[in-house]
Structure formats: structure tokens, C-alpha cells
Write a protein that binds this DNA or RNA. Sequence first.
DNA 1: TGGTATGTTCCAAA
DNA 2: TTTTGGAACATACC
Length: 327
Amino acid sequence: MPELPEVESVVRAQRQWLVGRRFVDFVSHWPRNAAPSAAAVREALVGRMVADVWRRAKYIVVTLAEDEAARPGSSRRPEASAGSRSASNSGRRSAQQSAGYLLIHLRMSGRLEWFTLPKGDGATAAKWPAGSPAHVRAEFEFDNGGRLLFCDARKFGRIAWTRDLTSVTAHLGVEPLDDEFRPAMLRELLQSRSRALKPLLLDQSLVAGIGNIYADEALHRAGLHPLTPSDRVEPEAVKRLCSAIRAVLRDAIRRNGTSFDWVYPSGTMQDHLRVYGRTGAACRACGSAIVALRVGQRGTHICPRCQPLPRGRAAEGRALRSGSARV
DNA sequence: TGGTATGTTCCAAA
DNA sequence: TTTTGGAACATACC
């Protein structure tokens, strides 16, 4: 269920439960998706306290507090005492004081779910009671007995521990909700290459966090066709696109994201989408039927009236080559 | 049965 | 060099 707003919603929901908690165990049921290895992640986590939970692009970032007193072998603190909020602020910025970072990427179908085993029967993931969460790929166990499950039907999700956060995030582009993301910056990104707009918006190394749903939504709000060559977008349209991106992401965060099928049930943005998944329905702006096409191998939804394809050989050539000419 | 799916990464081809 | 397409990852749903 992962795009920026959904990940942000998860982060906000989990932060209050996680900050100040201490890891007592980590178990992977799909070790291939743990980096550098499931054993290394376990070694890095056990005994560590969570200093902060935040987001970079579509990554959930858990900052681990550096306090040697609490490593395995020493006594466990009974309850998380102070330090949650104050620790979080420093933990986010000063890498030197952190014991590294746990990174979780949900990819296509990952989700986090709290689960408490029935007491006393020594149940394990292998023999959980009926009604337990499905597709559990990893378990994080905490000092209060809580168990955070990483569930992921498609097994695309990733769990990683790193001491050097930038080694993982260096390739990521600007956060679209950051102050620095302004029309001038977007214009430079668009002008510096000649690509169809939608694939460009999905490129995490340029703008980080936008996925298929919100790319479609932002382009519709801006009145731009997804195949528009990036270097042919007029300054006024760049402005519209910039605010459309920010507006749709903020809007979605406010509604806790978009709920899709069985994967992510908690948001309400799906009731307010203007084009994504609305093939054949009436455009909320002009009443025309929403049309589905294929752009860069991704399902794409547009209003043909609100988002006309700009005239010109470049755009038409791209449309034909990408197979989007149908429908 | 086949086509689809919110993501990322790799490779080949244009 | 840049951009695009395809496949791969693995599973569930319609």
C-alpha cells in the first residue's frame, strides 16, 4: 500500500507506540528480504531503543537510540521512561548519536500490524491461533510484550538495517512536501531532460514519494497529459503541477491515504480520487468519461478533455511508441 | 485461465 | 548519453 501519504500515515500511527520501546527480538520468515541479513538485523536491533520513527520518500525509518547500557546482557529497563519526543528530534538529525537505522519499505503489499499472542501457551508464528494475520514475513518483539508484524502478501517488501542512512537514501530526490520543492526547482527538473511527465514523476531519484495513484491525480489536477514531454511544459503549467502535487499529497495524508483492496484498509482518499481507478466514470471537473491508458507499463487514468495531449511530433511519437494510442 | 495490481531494479534496445 | 521497454521479484484477486 505504499505511496508517500500511506507511508506517512503508517509512520504517524506507529510513532506513538514505538518511540521509547526497546527491541527484544527480531524473527524473519522470509530472510531473503532482510538486509544485510536477517541475523545482522537481529543483532543490530535486540536491546536497542527506538528514538524516532519518521519517513523518507516511501521508506519508514526507525532511528535507534545509542545507549550501550541497554545492550543484551545488561538489565532491561522495565518501562520506557522519558525521552520519547526529545530523543526523537535529535535522533532524526544527528547520525553520530544513533545506533543506526531500521528501514522498512512496504513496496506493493507490505503492512504493519500489532499482534499479541495469547498468554502462556508458548505459541510461535508457526502455530498461531486462528484469526492471526496472514502473510507474516517478519516479527519485531518489544519490551512490553508487543509484537509488530511485517505482513506482505507479495514478498516485495524490504527490511534493512544500516548505520549510514545515506547509503540507502542517497539516490532519492527531493521530498515534494519540503519547502524547497517550489516551481523553480520543479521547472529545472523538467527542463533538464526530455521525458514523458508521468514516468518522470514516478522516478524516485527526481521527486521522492510519488507513486502511480498520486501521479495520475496530480497530473489531472494540473490539467496535464501524462505523455507531455517534460521540457515542453510551460512555466504556468509547472506552477500548477507543483501545487497539484503538494495539494494531492497533503489531501491524501489528511485522509490517512488511499485504501486499496485487501492490503491497506484504513484510509479514505479512495472516495476522493479524481481519475485513478475511475475508468468510464464522469470527470468530476467536466463530466467527460475517464479513460485508461498505459504509460511506461503503468496503468494510467486521465480525463481526455481536462488533460489534452499537446500537439507536436514529440508527444505524438511517444504516444504511439508507448502503445497508449489505444483507447 | 489470464489479466491486473499501490514498487523497485536490472538489462537490453532504441 | 539518455530514454524506454521488458522482465523479474511472488502472490492474490477479479
